[in-house]
Design a protein around this nucleic acid. Structure first.
Lengths: 191, 191
DNA sequence: TACACTAGAGAACGTTCGTTCTCAGCGCAA
DNA sequence: TTGCGCTGAGAACGAACGTTCTCTAGTGTA
């Protein structure tokens, strides 16, 4: 079918909305079917099981994150500004109505202990982000430990914003990042 | 009964072990009953429902956390050292075999969106921790923003350690905390 | 018109889970 | 001994869920 791909992404986006907003186990395949507007038969012929669907949803989320970070850093010139753009991206995300924390952290907390696939997906997503931060830090001439610290700030901001219900953590994390970067890099951007 | 209180804490500790290691929805009341070694009838007469039990388990977890932080900071003299003791406490925790991240973050990710009670418990736990950090920072003469930054580091270390499966995040967070404290406090501990 | 084929709607099935109910056994007062 | 209340073990119940099956309506084709 021509719309095979369209059907798949339609289902993935629908499932993502539901899983992210209500949790994975709390959302039945029937709800996914309703949200996507297709039949159960088609749903199961496109994705063999809920596990398979969930895996694709997590990969979709990962791409969304990567795209968001890339877009946010596009306007920044220096590696330092690209690093700080991460926290600006978080700030915008935290302010969205449907923000409910990091989907990978949530999924890991819900099913990481009983589903190796989910644990692996979360681990890969986080290590991919750490590699991204590391490459920017290296480009800026900073030590690897700075990358780990900046990544921890980003993770902490996400859980803090989710649980507290306020976006303040983004600004706090950004300020901390500025301090850490300035302390670690010999010459900051001060003209 | 004399052992009423003993029964309750026995059940709470058993449920805590199971909920923490496998997740909440993945653990049935039957498993709790087996782990606690009591009858279903007694389980339900002591706690009216799984929700009630979960609530008590979360409060128990909160006390455990408070006690752990208090014990870790007991040896420290200055507010600065008490702040850093937080990350030493995390370091020891991350190295335990059964470490699976912060129970409140996990519970929030799993059920926070559909259970206001759990969302509230997580929010209260985190804000209690932030008050603790804030009081130490104030005692040390630091600005409130430093407290927020240090708390974000602690949260980020917990999720990073859980998902990555290594305890390294504790040391990274501690190093970042040292940098942030030294930058925010006029006079550091340098004799 | 007759016929194969497809697809959608939802019934059905088997399992799991939270919670309640039943029943047999036991201690105990009279 | 007899009756009574309590307790534990687990059966039972109703709901929800993942997954499969059935039935029906429609469509294109000869």
């Amino acid at each position: 079918m021509i719309d095979d791909e369209a059907t798949r992404s339609n289902v993935i986006e629908a499932a993502d909305r539901l899983f992210y907003s209500r949790g994975i186990q709390a959302v039945g395949m029937d709800a996914v079917r309703n949200e996507a507007g297709i039949s159960l038969k088609k749903l199961y012929s496109a994705f063999g099981s809920k596990d398979v669907l969930l895996n694709e949803v997590l990969h979709y989320r990962g791409r969304q994150w990567d795209d968001g970070i890339a877009a946010a850093s596009a306007a920044a010139r220096t590696p330092r500004d690209k690093l700080l753009a991460i926290y600006d991206f978080l700030n915008g995300w935290f302010r969205q109505d449907d923000f409910r924390g990091c989907a990978f952290i949530n999924s890991f907390g819900e099913l990481g202990s009983i589903s190796p696939e989910i644990a692996k997906a979360a681990r890969e997503q986080k290590s991919s982000f750490q590699r991204y931060v590391s490459s920017l830090v290296a480009e800026a001439g900073g030590p690897p430990s700075l990358a780990a610290q900046l990544a921890i700030l980003a993770e902490g901001a996400q859980t803090t914003a989710a649980i507290s219900g306020t976006p303040d953590a983004a600004a706090h994390a950004r300020a901390a990042a500025v301090t850490l970067i300035d302390a670690a890099l010999p010459v900051s951007g001060a003209a």
